[in-house]
Design a protein around this nucleic acid. Structure first.
Length: 191
DNA sequence: CCCCAGATTGTCT
DNA sequence: GACAATCTGGGGA
């Protein structure tokens, strides 16, 4: 949950051969190891979710509705928690993303968890990938400040259980965020 | 095997 | 905002 906030503003970088694509994280959701029925590991470990039980900074990539979604594992070994990255602001390799996603406006390239996976070509082969290796797929700091924007909190999108938990975080006013609630009811303190 | 959930998306009204 | 298309893997028979 803390990591979900910390990941906002960070860069997600992907290299496939010579082509590099990179985006700034503007929207995340936390999935907790306990008391969260929406967490994929709530029913214990299986082949599909086993990378959630891996070390922190492991990638957890799963398939849903015939699409991929990308998570960062956040807790210690055998404690299944992860942060879903829901939206990116495309920064590097826009043409490559457009080739992968079809020629769409900039806002449509990575606004949504499965859209960003298509734009960065993230698939199940990256499930369990160590994000600290600094190759293929990794995270980095952004030089650009976003202190002018505040972190907004809301319930998670699309979940059918634990709807009440406010575990989604996004940059208020950012045009690359996938969905804005009718009412923005709670603002978490900005660092 | 069969059934079906599911952290989605695109299209249509 | 409603809804159908899409498909993998878990769980039951």
């Amino acid at each position: 949950m803390i990591v979900a906030r910390e990941l906002l503003g960070k860069l997600l970088i992907r290299r496939v051969g010579k082509s590099v694509t990179c985006g700034r994280i503007v929207e995340t959701e936390a999935y907790l190891p306990t008391g969260d029925s929406a967490c994929h590991a709530a029913q214990g470990e299986n082949r599909k979710n086993q990378s959630m039980f891996a070390a922190p900074a492991t990638a957890y990539v799963y398939v849903i509705h015939a699409r991929y979604c990308f998570n960062v594992v956040t807790e210690a070994l055998d404690t299944p928690a992860a942060v879903l990255v829901r939206a990116l602001e495309p920064l590097v390799g826009v043409e490559v993303m457009q080739r992968r996603r079809g020629k769409r406006p900039l806002e449509e390239l990575a606004r949504g968890p499965a859209k960003l996976c298509e734009a960065l070509r993230i698939d199940r082969s990256l499930d369990g990938w160590d994000l600290t290796r600094g190759e293929k797929l990794w995270l980095a700091e952004d030089n650009v400040q976003f202190s002018a924007q505040h972190v907004q909190q809301s319930p998670r999108i699309g979940v059918t259980s634990a709807k009440d938990l406010q575990l989604r975080f996004y940059l208020r006013g950012n045009r690359f965020v996938s969905k804005i609630p009718k009412r923005e009811w709670r603002i978490s303190a900005d660092d």
